[in-house]
Simulated scan of single mutants.
Amino acid sequence: MEVPEPAEPTARRRRGRTTLLIAAAAVLGVVAGTCVGYLIQADREPTKLASLSQPVLTQAKGPAPEPLSAAQDRQVKVDGDLRKLLLKKPAGAKEADWLTGDDGWMDLGTYAESYESPGDMFGELVGDEFRRAAVTGWESGNQTVEIRLLQFRQEESGAAADVVDNNEYWADAKSGTDSWSVPGTGEGMAYVHTKPKTEAGYLPQYSAEATASRGDIAVEIWVYDTKPIPKAKILDLAERQMERL
Rank of each mutant, 00 (worst) to 15 (best):
E66N: 06
E243S: 15
V36T: 11
V182M: 03
E187Q: 15
S53Y: 12
D162Q: 14
A210V: 06
M1W: 11
T58C: 07
R240W: 06
N166H: 08
L125G: 05
E45T: 12
A160M: 02
A26T: 08
L99V: 03
C35V: 15
Q54D: 12
T177V: 09
L28N: 07
A71C: 02
E243K: 15
W98A: 03
V163G: 05
P4I: 03
D81A: 03
P4A: 05
R148Y: 05
Q41H: 15
L49D: 07
V126S: 09
E155K: 15
K94L: 15
E129L: 01
G80Y: 06
E2M: 11
E129D: 09
P230F: 00
Y115K: 06
S53F: 11
S157N: 10
E139H: 13
A32R: 11
K233M: 04
Q75T: 14
S175D: 15
S181I: 12
V36H: 07
I217C: 04
A171L: 14
V219C: 04
Q54R: 15
R131N: 09
D236W: 02
D79E: 12
E146H: 09
D107A: 04
T144R: 08
S114C: 01
A91W: 09
G141W: 06
A24T: 12
T144P: 10
D120V: 08
S181F: 11
L237E: 08
D107S: 04
A91D: 10
L235F: 01
V27E: 06
V30A: 15
A32K: 08
Y206I: 01
A60W: 09
Q41K: 14
Y191N: 03
K61E: 14
G186L: 01
K233C: 00
T47L: 12
D43L: 11
S53M: 12
R148P: 01
A134Y: 03
V76F: 12
Q75W: 13
E116D: 11
A50M: 14
D103L: 06
A93Y: 02
V78N: 10
E124T: 12
